[in-house]
Structures are given as structure tokens and as C-alpha cells.
Design a protein around this nucleic acid. Structure first.
Lengths: 214, 214, 214, 214
DNA sequence: AGCTAAGCGAGACGGTACGTCCAGTCTTTGC
DNA sequence: GCAAAGACTGGACGTACCGTCTCGCTTAGCT
């Protein structure tokens, strides 16, 4: 009859395996997309037993989320340019760079969306650990602007968050138009324009936001 | 201008099979969800050969999209209340009803997003046959408003489309907040507020849009 | 109550189609063997509707048998060299030529064996219309030799037929050794040797019948 | 000479599955014949995953051949009566019993012939694992007889093998005459008669070997 | 000349089996 | 007790054929 709580016995988790798996996941997501990501292939590419994966990751979503968390430095700094419009534009531009850069996280994020739709448990994780963290960044910007009087108190910040990030995800997922500088600035301008006192800067009609034409 | 020399030869497509398949798809989607939808089972339930399904539908997404198109009367009428804000609010409210009603299409649309991320071919179909059709409805409303002088000519309509529909999909997919009347009206108000001349109606700070807390 | 036999009305069978089908069958049997012979492909290659094939040929076996009957001139002449051994050798050599020639019938015969094993009805046809016809040729040679006193009356002719044709089919089907001149002459010699009075011609041990070595 | 550095790792092949598959194959062969034997149904009846079957058996023929090999004790003892004629007769009689007995293997062998004609890969297996094994038994008998001086050195043993087994397969496949004792003895007698010194035993003309008539 | 009865190529139909792939689990050996 | 290897059941995938069933057209003899 064993009564001592027995702190731990047996072999410890292999850090090498953990890293190999995450690297394999990232590579496969980037090269072939989410559809080609299977437990079998991850195990084969990482030179790891399948059981090891199942032991440590509860689902494919956890696998992907984990890989991403490891990838992106988790700290997202808020821009602080002094004006809401430029703050938002800066935030979006930086986001777009991460999505489209040389190690693009766009495909990975799309994979996470897929995963979140297939597994409700994962949706909860994704929302709290990923989406909400991004919302919080923008929320701070909005509150700061409101404090400065740049935004009237009638503006519903949560609604603005939905519109800004909604537009971002919408373009990311469906790809009908690019995530470019024009897009970032267009959104920023509209949010800033919520202030009825803002005297609109003189400007020409915004370009067609990078759709097929020039 | 006749270009097809051979009008058609061979047996014609069976309407009965087409309908049986679509009905089976809808039933299965609603009873067991997208994950349980397989070509094998659709064929079995519809009493149809698998080949017949593969012959006419290029992917599982096409199958679902088609079933959905058949389900909803394909014509989406534009509201015409005389003012942009109320037009948009009406459009969104009606959309939300379809998504959440007694025959909810919300889960089906989420499934289509998944499908579109897994199969690029289907993404193209989904964009042109579904998304673009919805965009066009709102585009008409915006143009009408611009003609009336309700929107300054500097406003980029495509950007507005991205923000409105982006917010909708964002909430639909991630479910952090409901698709309710307050959301519809909040969005509508913001878009209408793009007009710098609009004198903001007197109103209290919008409620927190039905989030968990008050 | 129809009593008049009504001679015939309607379009007549298309001879062009009949020939196209038979040619297609022969070509396919020769090039890819029986396994690649499918109704679909025959129809496609012959540019003929599938129904036309099903209308006129009751089974794949009928198709193959028909093609063969058309191919080989049905009359098989008996050799008559004056001696049983040379008669048999000549018969076999001629058979081997047909099997391996520029329009080889070997693959076709193998196909008929397959067919006969799968369809008992066809086995009966194959036996009476094909196998027995070949047996009869050799049977005549044996009877002629017996009449000349070359074979003792104790020899069971049917048994000899089984051994001669058995050996032929055995090599044809399993391909462990070639159907060559040495084989023909070896068999002929042994049958002729059934006569105990025959003074064996002086000869060296027969070669290894053309197996891998020379 | 150790060449395999890795002894073996991973789960071992399941003997239970192997046996279940073989039993299923034999049952199905006997109850419904070769035509009804499909991988799908074998898997279903044996309660085994299809992949397991494909993993261990390269073709349907291999499946059947294996089941058969397991069935019959693989060791085929050579008869040793002291005389070639009686040896051969004994060998053939015993073979016929297996083919026609209460668990008849005749139909299964016919199926293997079909399979070998359809799949060249399997033909090779069938030849080396089945046909050649039987040839070797008779080859030993012939060599023994030659050593005793019962057969002249001019006799080509391979040719004799082709004639003996050829006759057997010929009757088995086409069924024009039975595989009976008379057949066995008739063949044995002829082979033994290849010795020109043998004084033929006095005997009446062999009966018609059981053909339709008496 | 018009009518009716086949036959024609084309090709869609419901089915069945194929051979592959993956999910998740289980078992074996080694560390 | 963890890890790599790999076999296990189960089940969907997408393809190939089977034998049948339209489809619109052509060809023939009969009225």
C-alpha cells in the first residue's frame, strides 16, 4: 500500500522531443498548410513516437496553438504616437508584417481558426489566450484616446474592437483584398473619424484599397 | 453566336438525385453537424451513388454551399428605409435572424469557412458565390446613400464593407459576443457617423453589447 | 395476341460496331492482358456505346471467345509427315508459332482460361468449341499411327492427349519455361517412345529445354 | 554475420489477426467461392482492419495461397515404394485426394490460377512457393529412379515434370475427365515406360479413363 | 411520305470494391 | 515510467467498373 505521495518517478519528459514536434508543426503549417498537418506526419518528421504527441497535446489545436505561442514573443507592445489614428495605423501595420513576413504566421492563424471551429474546447482557449490579448492592446489605445478627449464617451469601445479586428480577420481568411498599408490607414482614419469634432483632413478619395486594380 | 457544336448527348442529370443529395446534406448538417458529414454517408442516406456526388460537386464545401443556396431563397432584397443608418441596421438584423433562427444557418456558415481554409479551390467559389453576393447588397446601400449626399465622397466603400461584414463574421466565428439588435444598430450608427455633417443624435453611451458582464 | 412472327423491323445491327469491338478486344488483350479488359474501356476504345456491347455479347467471356473465333481461321490442318514423332513435333511447333507470333494469341488463350474458371457456362463452350477441336487433331494423328503399328494398342490415346496438351497449357499459363522447338521435339519423342519396339535414336541427353541457360 | 543492427522495435505482428484472416479466407472461399472473396469482406468477417491485410499480403492471391499453405501441412513427403511407377502413382493419388476430398482444395487452386493470370507479381510467388515445391517432390523421385537405372540418362526430367503436372492441371482446370485412380496409374505407367528396357507388363488396353461413358 | 421499331453513341445512374490515408490506441523494447 | 517504433481497428477518401437506364439521333422496313 503506497501512501507516500511519490513526487515523481521514471523518465522525465524529453525537451528535445517537445522542440522537434513544435518545429515540425511550424514547418508543415507553413509549407503545406493546415490540411497537410497530420499526427502521423508530424511524428514522422519530428522523429518522435505518435504516443508522445498524444501524451502531451490534447488535440491538434493545442499542438498548433502551442507552436504559435512558442513562436511569437508573447508580449505585444502598444504603440504610443500621441494620436489615436496613428496609434491604430501603427498597430495594424505591425500586425500585417507578422502575418506576411518571411516567417508568415498568417497560415498558422487560419489553421487556428479552423481548429477552433472544429473543437469548441479549443475555441475557448484560443479566445482567451490569443484573441483577447490582442483586443486588450487596442482597448488600451482606445481608453487612452478617450481620456485625451479624442473619442466621445458615446463610442462603444467593444464595438470598435469588433470592427477593427473583424476587418482584419475577414481579409485574412478570405483573401479578397490585401492586408496592406492602405488598409491599415483606412481603418485607422475611420475609427479616428468617430470624433464628430475632428476636422477631417483634406484628402482625396481613398484608393480602392489594393484590389486587383492599381 | 453559337460556339457549342454538340448540344448534349447522353442521359440528363437526374433532378431527383440532386434533390436527394441536398436534402440529405441539410439533414445531416443539422442533426450531427459538419464533422459528421462525409461523402460516404451522404451517398448512403440519399440513396445515391458516390460517383454521382463527385460528378457534380467538387468538394464537401461545394456540397454544403449548394445545399444552403437552395435552402435560402437566393434573392437577398436590399432594405430601403430612406436613411443609411436604418438601412444597414435592417440588413444586419435580418441577417442575424437567418443565422440564429429556427433553422439556424450559423453553424453551416462556420463549416463553410473551415472548408474554405482547407481547400483553396472552394475558397474561390465561396467568395464569388456567397460573400460577394452579400457585399453587393450593402454596396448598393452605400452607393445610394452617397448619391443622396449622406456619405462624403472620400469614404472608401470597400473598406466599409470589410468593416461591417468583418465584424459580423468575427462575432459569428468566435462567439465572444452575440449577434443581437444592439450590435446591428451600433454598427449602423458608426457607419452613418462617417458623415462629418451628421449631427449626432443625443444618446447615452451604448450598452456593453450583451457581453457576459453588465 | 400476337401470332405473326413479324420478320424484323427497325435498324439493323451495325457491322462496323461489331468489328470495332472485336478489334478493340484483341488489341487490349494483347497489349495489357485480361486484367485490363473492361467493358468501359472496350467501349471507349471502339468508340461504341456500352449498351451496344451488352446487347450483343452476354458476358466478357463471350466477348473474348468471339474475338478469338474471328481471329483464328477455325480450320486446323493435321500434319502428315509419315511418322508420329515428326507429326507431333510439327503440330506443336505450329501451335507455338501462333501463340508467340507477331499477333500472339497466347495472352488471349490465357484470358479464356480465366474466363472459363469464373464462368462455368463458358467453360462448357470453351471445352467443346476450342479444346476438343485441338484434341481431335492430335487424336487423328494417334489413330493413324496406331493403324500403322507405330503405337501399341495398349496405349490410352486420351491419356496421351492430356499429357501433350497438358504440358503445353502448363508452360503457357505459368511461363516457367518457353514454348520452343526443343520442347516440341521433346514431347514428340516421348510420345513416340511409347512404342517399346522403337529403337531409340542415338542422341545426347536432351538439353535443359531452354530454361534460363542456352 | 550480423547485418541487421536494429533487432526489432514496435509492436509485434498479431498472431490472432493473422489466424482470423486466414480462417475468414478459407470459409469464404468454400462457402461463396473465389468470386465473392473481397478484401473488404475478409476484413469485415475477420474483424480486422483493411490496412492490416494490405500490410501483410500483397494481393488477393497471396492471401489465398497463404491460407492454403497454412491449411495443408506444408511438408509434402515423397513416396518411396522402390519403383518409379508406383511412386508416381502414389504421389498422384494422394494429390487427387487433397483436390477432391471433404475439404476440397481444387476450387481454391483454380482460383489461384486465375489470380496468377491477372497479376504477374502473384504469378511469380505462386510459381516459387507452390508449383516449384510440387515439382521438386517429383524431381527427387525421378533422380532416385535414374540413380537406380530405372530411367535412361537421355530422359529430360524437366520435360517429364511438365507432362505429369501439365496433365494434372489440364484436367483440373477444364474438367473434361476426372482425376481418378486410373488417371494416376496411366500417367505413372507411361513415365515408367520411358525406359526402353522395361518389359511392358501384359495388360489390356486401358479403359477410357472415366469419360462420360463407362 | 409517314410511321413505327429497333439500333446507335453518349453518358448519368446506384452499387460495390479497390487501395490509401489518418485517427487514436495498444504493445514491445530500450533507456 | 518515458520514448521511439510500429501494428492494431475503424472508417472516410476518391477512383474504377459493373450492368442498367435514359437521351436524342439514325436507319430501316411497312403502310
Amino acid at each position: 500500500m503506497e501512501t507516500t505521495p511519490r513526487p515523481h518517478t521514471g523518465r522525465k519528459r524529453s525537451e528535445a522531443s517537445r522542440l522537434a514536434v513544435q518545429e515540425a508543426v511550424l514547418e508543415m503549417l507553413r509549407s503545406d498548410g493546415y490540411a497537410a498537418l497530420t499526427f502521423d506526419k508530424v511524428a514522422a518528421r519530428a522523429k518522435v513516437g505518435k504516443q508522445t504527441i498524444y501524451r502531451w497535446w490534447s488535440s491538434k489545436g493545442a499542438l498548433v496553438l502551442d507552436a504559435l505561442a512558442d513562436e511569437s514573443s508573447e508580449r505585444i507592445p502598444e504603440p504610443d504616437t500621441g494620436a489615436l489614428e496613428t496609434d491604430i495605423a501603427a498597430l495594424l501595420r505591425r500586425s500585417f508584417e507578422v502575418l506576411d513576413g518571411d516567417k508568415p504566421t498568417g497560415p498558422i492563424l487560419k489553421a487556428l481558426v479552423v481548429e477552433s471551429q472544429l473543437h469548441p474546447d479549443f475555441l475557448e482557449q484560443f479566445r482567451s489566450q490569443f484573441l483577447e490579448r490582442r483586443r486588450q492592446v487596442l482597448r488600451v489605445l482606445l481608453e487612452r484616446a478617450a481620456a485625451r478627449g479624442e473619442l466621445p464617451p458615446t463610442v462603444d469601445h467593444e464595438l470598435v474592437l469588433d470592427q477593427v479586428f473583424g476587418a482584419l480577420w475577414y481579409r485574412l481568411l478570405f483573401g479578397h483584398a490585401p492586408l496592406d498599408r492602405a488598409f491599415a490607414e483606412g481603418i485607422a482614419r475611420q475609427v479616428a473619424g468617430l470624433n464628430p469634432d475632428a476636422k477631417p483632413r483634406a484628402r482625396a478619395r481613398a484608393p480602392q484599397a489594393g484590389r486587383k486594380g492599381p
